[in-house]
Amino acid sequence: MLMRDFKRITLLCGHYGSGKTNVAVNLAVALRERYDRLAVADLDIVNPYFRSKDSRGQFEDLGIRLICSEYANTNVDIPALPQDMYAVTDDRDLRVIIDVGGDDRGALALGRISQRILEENDYEMLAVVNSSRPLTHTPEDTVEVLREIEDAGGIQFTGIVNNTNLGRETDANVVLRSVSYAEAVSNLMEIPVVMTTVPAELFPQLQGKIENLFPLELQKKL
């Protein structure tokens, strides 16, 4: 299901609540089969809740390294970056999925390492988008948010992850309808849609109908 090649660094950015963390966790689990040394780096400085650290146990079981602030999920509500953050750029044998905080404010943290990422030039900067979110409902609104993120983070997007979903009310129609939205965002940004996510239970139903379909297991429930 993940036939395409991935660069050494995969950056996941987007509007907050677009599902970046869930995509990051699922992508890590899928890529673990391909790469021995794999890390997920959580650079969120905005949100004290719902962090990739929630999946720490699963990462440990699979041998995926978690690069994450000491303060994530501790209820200490301060913006902090991981102390081992530079492993992302300095350890070039390491495959990394970077889960960046939401919106332009979250992407500010990326500015700290964006120059090194650009110099190495072995990265993909993916925009996680969900058309069911109110502030990214239209392609135009979405592009506005994505441009703000590019400005704040200092890296341009190279692809789109269409993560359109309605939470537990996601059905095949929600995903099918989102295809034209993702294409419109793709045209406006002049970058390809690299994957469309779908809840794992809907994958068999939609396989073959949408290109680059990627099944998601829901990692977190309230």
């Binding site: 969900n130 069911s132 979110r133 109110p134 309605l166 009310e169």
Partner: peptide, 12 residues
């Protein structure tokens, strides 16, 4: 067309 959106309580 679905007229529902996915929102946080605070956003709602």
């Amino acid at each position: 067309m679905s007229d529902k959106v996915l929102m946080k309580g605070n956003e709602a």
